[in-house]
Structures are given as C-alpha cells and as structure tokens.
Amino acid sequence: MLADRRGRRISYLRISVTDRCNLRCRYCTGGIKKFISHDDILRYEELHGIIDTALDLGVSKVRLTGGEPFMRLGFPDFVRAVLARHPGIDLRVTTNATLLAPHLDSLRQAGLRRLNISLDTLDRERFAEITGRDLFDEVHGSILRALELGYDVKINAVGLRGINDDELPAFLELASEQPIDVRYIEFMPMGGCGRWGPDAVWPSEAILQRAMKIAPLEEVQDTDPTRGPARVYRIKGGKGRLGLISPLSGHICSICNRLRLTSDGRLRTCLFSDKEYRLRPILRHPKLGLPFAAEVMRRATLDKPIGEELLRARRETELVCSKGMLSIGG
C-alpha cells in the first residue's frame, strides 16, 4: 500500500495525458509555451502499466486530465481501454469540454460516469475574455448533453476577484436547477502565471458567506477516506450542490490522499512542491520497468511533504512552485 511517514494513505492518482490545451486561460498560461515533445510523453501502454500498478498499490480513484486531454490523439480510445481493463475502476476525466461533445455517447456506453468540467463564467463574452477563445456554446452544449446521458457532472470554477466574483448567483441558480456540483477553487500561486497576486484571490470563506445570503445551504458531512478536497454544501430545495476547494485558506494537507503524474512521466507527491521523481526512464529501461517504478512510487510517497508548510515558507507575493498547472495537470 502507498502511505507516507505521517500515516496518510494514497488512494487517488491524477494523470496528465498531455500538456497541450486549446484554451489560453488568463490565470493558467504564462505567455508562449513550449510543449513537451511527442517522444517525451508517456505512451498509452506505459500509462496502462502505471494504472495497473497504482491499483495494485491501493489506489482506488484515477483522474485523467491535461492540458486538455481530448487534444491528445486517441484519448477516447484510451479511456475506453482503461474501463474495459478495469471494469470497477473509479475513473474520472477533467476537461474544458470544448472537444467533448462527439465522444459523450460512446464514453458513456463504455462505462465512464464522472466528468469534471472547467468553466469559470456563464457569460459568453467573458468566457472569450478569460480563455482567449469564443467556445462557450460548445462547453454549455456538452454540459447539457452530459446531464441527459446521466453523467455525474462537476463544474470547477477558479474564483477570481474582480473578474468572475459577480457570477455567484448565476452559478448557484445553475446548481439549484441542475444536478451539478459547482465547485469554486481558490486562485493558486503556481508557476507560469504572471497574473497571480493576493488581491486576485477570492477566499473560500468570502464565497461561502456571500452564497449563504443568496441560497439556503446545508453542509454535507463526508467521512469517506477517499474523498476529494472540497467542502460541499447542499442547496436546500435544489438539485445540485456548492463545493469549496481552499488550497490557500483552508488546508486539508493532513488528509491529502493523492499523487500526480505529469504527461512526461514525473511523479509529484505534493502540488506545492517542485520535487519530482522521473518514472519515464525507468519504464523504458530494459532491466527496470514497472516493478522498479512501483518501488519508486512507494519510496517517494514515504517522504510526501505537507503543502501547508511550503505555502507558509514562501513570501506573500511569491509563486509556490516553478511549474504551472498546464504542465503539472489541472
């Protein structure tokens, strides 16, 4: 089993299948970016091996992300192959949903049940301003179709003070009318983003206080040890829920249960640490391969840091790690 010296057990693996994205969200990208070359991206067969190994080590939840995962050729086929290989797997996909629509029916038939969709605004013009692309209609249409097909849909919105903080009523209305979890994520000081600053952060407590004035909320108590980082509130009389993810103001590092794998095969045990473990050379070494990669995963997990301590050690306006979310995997 994967566990660190503090007794935290790992049950959740996030895998980035590509660092490429067709959007240029203002809080994510830091100007022109050089993408990882094709030869340096983990092959699908290597990803299958990593997933096999992770499940053997006690991981029960796997999330596939990017970049934008549907930018990678063959990604829908890979998802179907993972589901066929592991019929009981808790597999989730995080996407901006701009390329999702053509694959919704076939992925649902293959057994995919959960989608996380990144969407920071419900206004078409503002969407274009934030993302650099006029693709709101494609995203909105994909959300509606996913709900029709019975997907469990979560919408992730980065809370940006002065940019989308006036849209809380609209998002709460959406969550009330549809069986959707709308989750606000605090703007994190990650590398590659020149727009981060303390004044841009919309803290979760401020969101919650405002939300409680708009809609009747009831906190959902979740004792599941594999749960994610969100505090969740049921909207009384509504179909959906509000979630708050507070990496800056309300740390859950003491119960963190996840590892991240970048698209070029670097294992990260903490979002806020630059410490990485290179699995790609091990996987491609004729005498090492998956057994040795599994041992690296075990040993790396032992020294998994406390992200809150890393945040406290930085100066207030300082970025916490050199890599941006586009490279790490959202």
Rank of each mutant, 00 (worst) to 15 (best):
H48M: 15
H48I: 10
H48E: 11
G49F: 05
I50L: 11
I50P: 00
I51P: 00
D52S: 05
A54K: 04
A54C: 04
A54G: 09
A54Q: 11
A54I: 00
A54H: 11
L55D: 02
L57N: 06
L57Y: 12
L57H: 11
V59G: 11
S60N: 11
S60P: 06
K61P: 06
V62A: 01
L64K: 03
L64P: 05
L64W: 01
L64N: 06
T65M: 04
T65Y: 04
G66I: 13
P69G: 12
M71R: 11
R72S: 08
L73M: 09
G74F: 07
F75D: 01
F75L: 00
F78L: 02
F78P: 00
F78T: 04
V79A: 02
R80D: 14
V82R: 06
L83I: 09
L83S: 03
L83F: 07
L83E: 03
L83V: 01
A84M: 09
A84N: 15
A84H: 10
H86L: 00
H86R: 04
G88S: 13
I89W: 09
I89T: 06
I89F: 08
D90F: 13
D90E: 15
L91T: 09
L91E: 05
R92G: 14
R92D: 13
V93M: 05
V93L: 02
T94N: 03
T94D: 03
T95K: 07
T95S: 14
T95P: 08
N96T: 09
A97L: 08
L100Q: 07
A101S: 14
A101D: 14
P102V: 10
P102S: 12
P102C: 12
H103G: 10
S106M: 13
S106P: 04
S106H: 04
R108F: 14
R108C: 06
Q109K: 10
Q109N: 12
A110D: 02
A110H: 11
G111S: 02
G111C: 03
R113E: 12
R114D: 01
R114M: 06
N116C: 01
I117G: 00
I117S: 02
I117F: 02
S118R: 09
S118H: 14
D120S: 09
T121N: 00
L122A: 08
R124A: 15
E125F: 14
E125R: 14
E125H: 14
E125Q: 13
R126T: 08
R126C: 05
R126N: 10
R126W: 06
F127W: 05
A128I: 03
A128S: 12
I130F: 14
I130Y: 13
T131H: 12
G132S: 07
G132N: 12
G132L: 05
D134C: 08
D134K: 15
D134G: 07
L135G: 06
L135I: 05
L135W: 14
V139C: 00
G141S: 05
G141N: 01
G141K: 01
I143D: 00
I143Y: 07
L144I: 12
L144R: 15
L144C: 11
L144G: 12
